[in-house]
Structure formats: structure tokens, C-alpha cells
């Protein structure tokens, strides 16, 4: 069973629907990077897209997205980023499998995702910095911090690790937080087209019959369409974080509306 069904599970994740998300997730990753440099933050923020796509299309698509992000950075910005593809890939896998386990639905789960991602990235990125680049890549604040630590503790590996850990905890914290907010704001009709566990398709076939059942209901809905909007306010509370942000899109309210409707049923 194992190897073959695992492989089939992995290839099933690469549907056209997921494939078209990858360039966009790579774009989000790079926008995060641009953002942090525009804001003059000493961070990368280059895994927001990877985290989002992990929630939509699963671990292996996220891994590929991480790989492509680094390849893209290598192509257009600086080839130094290429070896770090390894840590992006591993982070994508770790986030993906943790999301698949349902951790992104709970706050403590999100915290776990943050810590795991920071840890994985710290270890792999540090190993790459030490073994590929001998300790510094000369392109960021971390290298300077590392150099300062080398002077202080006189050990290259420890210096790289500790400067990287500090940076990663902050960086991945912000990354996971932003990704969480984005995923919460994605319209449900879009989100529902992506299945994290492939079993849902099967379940769908069984209850074809209820297509009829709601026909009368739809008649009511069609006539009472206007009353539907006004009843949608209560959901606002759990959208506290979103409501601070741009109100013009109106998505959070819609989502909340749909959520309450579902729970009524």
C-alpha cells in the first residue's frame, strides 16, 4: 500500500487548480520580501504564500512553491538564495502536514505551526549558511549579527545558529500570522474547491438525492433574498482581526454570514 498510494496522493495534489496557485503563492512570497525591505524590516517574510498554499493544496504543492520561490529569487535577484530552497521545501512540507492534521483551525495549533516552522528553518538554513557559504552570505543583517557573535563566542556554528534562531522566531511569527489572516479571508466558495483530504469527493456522490430537497427552500430564498443580508451581523465577533483591515472588500462579513447559515442547518 504505502509507497504507491503515497505517490498517488502526492501527484493528486498537483491538479491544474493547485498548479495555477503556485505562481501566485510565489508572488505572495516575494511581495512579503519586498514589503519587509520597503518597511526596512530586517526580516524575509518570504513564506506567506507557502503557508497559504499549504492550507489550500497540501504539503507537496507547498514544498514545490518553496522551491520555486528560491529558484525565482536566484533567477531575478541573487543566486545566493538557491541553496536555501532546501529549507523552504522542508518548511512547506512541515506546514502542509501540520495543516493537514487540522492544526490551523486552533490558535494553539497555529502557534505550534509557527514554532515548528521557525525551528526547521533555523536548523536547515544555518546548516546551509555554514556548509555552503562558510558562515555568511553577505546579503543581510543576519550576516552582520553572525559576525558580531563570532567575535563574542568564537564559534562559527553556534553564532550562525543563534542569530538565525532569533530572526526566524520573529520572521515566522509574522509570516504565520499574516497567512492565517489571509486564509480566514478567502471566500468560502473559492476555498471549498480545494480539498485538503481527497476523501471528500467520494462522500459527495452519496448524497445526490438532497438536490431535490432544497428546491422548495430555494424558492423561499429567492423571494426572501433581501432578508438574508440583514441577518448576517452576529458573525462579526470572530472577525475582530479582520475588521481592523480594509473594510471595502466586505469579504469577512460574507464569510461570517455563510458560516452562521451553515450552522443553523
Amino acid at each position: 500500500m504505502s509507497a504507491r498510494s503515497l505517490w498517488r496522493g502526492i501527484t493528486a495534489q498537483f491538479s491544474t487548480k493547485s498548479l495555477v496557485l503556485i505562481p501566485i503563492a510565489v508572488g505572495i512570497n516575494l511581495i512579503g520580501g519586498t514589503l519587509s525591505s520597503t518597511l526596512k524590516l530586517p526580516l524575509f517574510l518570504d513564506m506567506i504564500g507557502t503557508t497559504v498554499i499549504a492550507c489550500l493544496s497540501g504539503p507537496w504543492v507547498a514544498a514545490l512553491c518553496g522551491l520555486l520561490t528560491n529558484v525565482f529569487l536566484a533567477l531575478v535577484a541573487n543566486p545566493v538564495y538557491l541553496p536555501y530552497a532546501l529549507s523552504s521545501v522542508l518548511c512547506g512540507l512541515v506546514i502542509g502536514y501540520m495543516v493537514k492534521a487540522g492544526l490551523f483551525k486552533r490558535i494553539w495549533g497555529v502557534v505550534l505551526v509557527w514554532l515548528a516552522c521557525a525551528l526547521v528553518n533555523t536548523v536547515t538554513a544555518s546548516l546551509i549558511t555554514v556548509f555552503v557559504y562558510g558562515g555568511a552570505t553577505g546579503v543581510n543583517g543576519t550576516s552582520v549579527l553572525t559576525a558580531a557573535l563570532v567575535v563574542a563566542v568564537k564559534n562559527i556554528v553556534i553564532s550562525v545558529l543563534s542569530s538565525s534562531m532569533l530572526e526566524n522566531l520573529i520572521d515566522k511569527g509574522i509570516t504565520v500570522l499574516i497567512a492565517y489572516v489571509i486564509v480566514r479571508r478567502i471566500p468560502k466558495r473559492f476555498l471549498s474547491q480545494y480539498a485538503l483530504d481527497g476523501s471528500e469527493d467520494q462522500a459527495d456522490l452519496d448524497d445526490l438525492d438532497d438536490l431535490d430537497e432544497d428546491e422548495d427552500e430555494d424558492e423561499r430564498e429567492a423571494t426572501g433574498a433581501s432578508s438574508r443580508e440583514s441577518s448576517a451581523r452576529p458573525g462579526k465577533i470572530d472577525g475582530a482581526m479582520e475588521s481592523e483591515r480594509d473594510p471595502s472588500t466586505g469579504d469577512p462579513a460574507d464569510l461570517a454570514c455563510e458560516r452562521t447559515q451553515r450552522s443553523e442547518r
Binding site: Q193, D214, E215, R262
Partner: peptide, 10 residues
């Protein structure tokens, strides 16, 4: 549509 509240085409 999957998870939709109503049937889009009837």
C-alpha cells in the same frame, strides 16, 4: 458547488 448553501442550477 461543494459546501454551497444552495443549488446553483436546478
Amino acid at each position: 458547488y461543494r459546501d454551497a448553501d444552495r443549488t446553483t442550477l436546478k
